[in-house]
């Protein structure tokens, strides 16, 4: 038999529509409702900064994060307060691993995420560390596109969609339990639990 080609072609990854028997939404099923529209972050220039009440403040490049930390996959549905939802296979790194590398101080109680467009949101630290929360770089087997949050989107399972911060650029460990992010400071619940209303009572 004749070999027509010795070359190995790397094909573009194909978006999955199903995973382990579960139907998935498409990555194009999201509604664009970010505060300043889609952001375009340079992969080469990107640095994730982890700072605040930690012993070890650090910056990591996109490739360093992808290659240095164990990745996890999980199908999780994002529920938006506008009434739509998407079921996606998320793949990413555990936020817990990023935090451990930073060696948080005992007084750190809150974790604050900041995004490229100025958006921010926060969580109690144990909410992130106890619940296997991932910072995703792939959705449905494809790298998260810029419109959907490249390089990283937080998969805030069991929280309303406004907690699922996109275009993450930095993580801060803080002792400010009253910190309110973008929508939270405009009246949305800081807890954002799915089984509760999303307005501050």
């Amino acid at each position: 038999m004749t070999n027509f080609s010795e070359e190995i072609f790397e094909l573009d990854t194909v978006e999955l529509s199903e995973y382990q028997g579960e139907q998935l939404s498409s990555i194009y099923d999201f509604r664009e409702n970010s505060i300043r529209g889609p952001q375009y972050v340079s992969r080469e220039k990107y640095r994730l900064r982890v700072t605040g009440l930690v012993n070890n403040t650090y910056n990591l490049t996109y490739d360093e994060i992808i290659n240095s930390f164990h990745s996890s996959k999980k199908i999780i549905t994002l529920f938006c307060v506008e009434g739509w939802e998407v079921k996606i296979l998320w793949e990413g790194v555990m936020v817990r691993d990023l935090i451990e590398l930073a060696e948080p101080l005992p007084e750190a109680t809150t974790i604050i995420f900041y995004a490229y467009d100025g958006y921010s949101t926060s969580f109690p630290l144990e909410c992130i560390t106890d619940n296997n929360i991932i910072m995703a770089y792939k959705m449905n087997n494809v790298t998260i596109p810029p419109e959907r949050g490249f390089p990283f989107q937080l998969v805030a399972e069991s929280k309303w969609g406004y907690k699922w911060i996109k275009w993450i650029t930095s993580i801060e460990l803080s002792d400010n339990t009253d910190y309110k992010g973008y929508w939270e400071s405009r009246g949305y619940s800081n807890n954002a639990d799915l089984d509760k209303g999303f307005f501050e009572e």
Binding site: V81, W183, R186, G187, Y188, F199
Partner: peptide, 8 residues
């Protein structure tokens, strides 16, 4: 008229 107010 911000989004949360619109929503409510």
């Amino acid at each position: 008229l911000i989004k949360p107010i619109s929503f409510q």
